[in-house]
């Protein structure tokens, strides 16, 4: 079950993919495709994810901006949510950043072990959400290239 015999091209050969994508996990998704040329299923999932990520990042921005009651909890949950789907697709970097969002939202440090203050959390959340977005953008480009999609 290696990805290398893929006729339609190896995603890992796309520059930057190595950093961003876990090959085994992504390969598993690709295997679900009925047709290796069309890649209908995996493509739909990946594009679903694009949509989900966009929505989620927007929600995050809003929460962080408004700082309403329980906004940290919300942010943590959003982080967890996006972590779930990015993990499923093997989008390692985005997943890691989402995990951090999840931790900061719980007033914990990167690894989820040490406590941090709310101020620290706000600052860290701002940075990490920005970072996650960049990472998402990067991986999105890679995936788009993989699916040979130039529009959108």
């Amino acid at each position: 079950m290696s990805a290398s015999d893929d006729k339609s091209g190896d995603i890992m050969s796309i520059p930057g993919a190595e950093d961003q994508i876990d090959p085994a996990t992504f390969e598993q998704i690709l295997e679900m495709d009925d047709d290796d040329a069309e890649r209908e299923f995996s493509k739909s999932i990946v594009y679903d994810f694009f949509g989900q990520a966009d929505t989620t990042f927007k929600k995050m921005d809003k929460e962080l901006e408004k700082k309403e009651d329980k906004y940290l909890k919300e942010l943590s949950e959003l982080g967890h949510f996006l972590k779930g789907s990015s993990a499923t697709l093997g989008l390692t970097k985005v997943k890691d950043s989402c995990e951090k969002i999840q931790h900061y939202g719980q007033l914990k440090d990167d690894s989820g072990t040490k406590d941090i203050t709310e101020e620290q959390a706000q600052e860290k959340l701002g940075t990490i959400i920005k970072q996650a977005k960049t990472e998402f953008k990067e991986v999105k480009e890679i995936l788009k290239e993989f699916y040979k999609d130039d529009d959108a």
Binding site: I45, F49, Q52, L89
Partner: peptide, 11 residues
């Protein structure tokens, strides 16, 4: 999570 649900269903 919709994506996870889809993937799991497919799997």
């Amino acid at each position: 999570n919709l994506i996870n649900r889809k993937v799991m269903l497919r799997m």
